[in-house]
Amino acid sequence: MKYTPAQFSGWVEYNGYMSDLEDAKLAAQVTQGDEKAFLALYDRYSSRVHALTLRILNDPMMAEEATQDTFLKLWNRAHLYLAERGSLLPWLLTIARRVALDRLRLEARRPLLSDADDPDEKWQSIPDGNTLSDEHRWRSLHFAVQSLSAEHRQVIELAYYQGLSQSEISETLGWPLGTVKTRLRAAMQQLRREWDR
């Protein structure tokens, strides 16, 4: 089988169902030690993973290392990916987030994420048959985040892209815990309205 590396510039077109089928096939081949299949997945998703690690770590060198670690995890743990539970990309991005946040916590000498945040653990405990997202929804979500108020955007940023708990956000921003909870909930509800549209 011949793989053609995808050329990414800006937003990549994610081809939904067909792409998922191919991802599942490639992931299965990776479990068999197929390096070409692995590199095909790298070519397809490295720009997504790298964008996320760079967003979280805000340091090109650390982001590259985290991107590499993420794909090495894919190489070593591809057998844990279950195609019937959802698409490969969200699974891969969840791994990337965890890898990047662990690095961030190491740098800040904060405790690492617990195993409960491990993407595999999550999938095991809460079955999710409807995580198929598409490019259009992600793009809408991106603009919805941009349109949040500064406080709401900040609380989402700290909670999700910096991995802080609500108590840690309260401590960091000097806001009462109740305010953090309210703002986080309000921000997510606003994003959901866009998500459900």
């Binding site: 990414f8 510039s9 800006g10 937003w11 990549v12 994610y14 490295s46 720009s47 997504r48 790298h50 964008a51 996320l52 760079l54 967003r55 982001a63 590259e64 991107t67 959802g86 990309l89 969200p90 991005l93 969840t94 990337a96 987030r97 995580t131 997202s133 929804r137 992600w138 793009r139 979500l141 991106h142 985040v145 989402i156 999700y160 997510m188 994003l191 959901r192 998500w195």
Partner: peptide, 14 residues
């Protein structure tokens, strides 16, 4: 949605 937030970042090639 939270998975969507991970993908809602413009891609950047390493």
């Amino acid at each position: 949605m939270s998975e969507g937030l991970l993908a809602a970042i413009p891609p950047k090639s390493p």
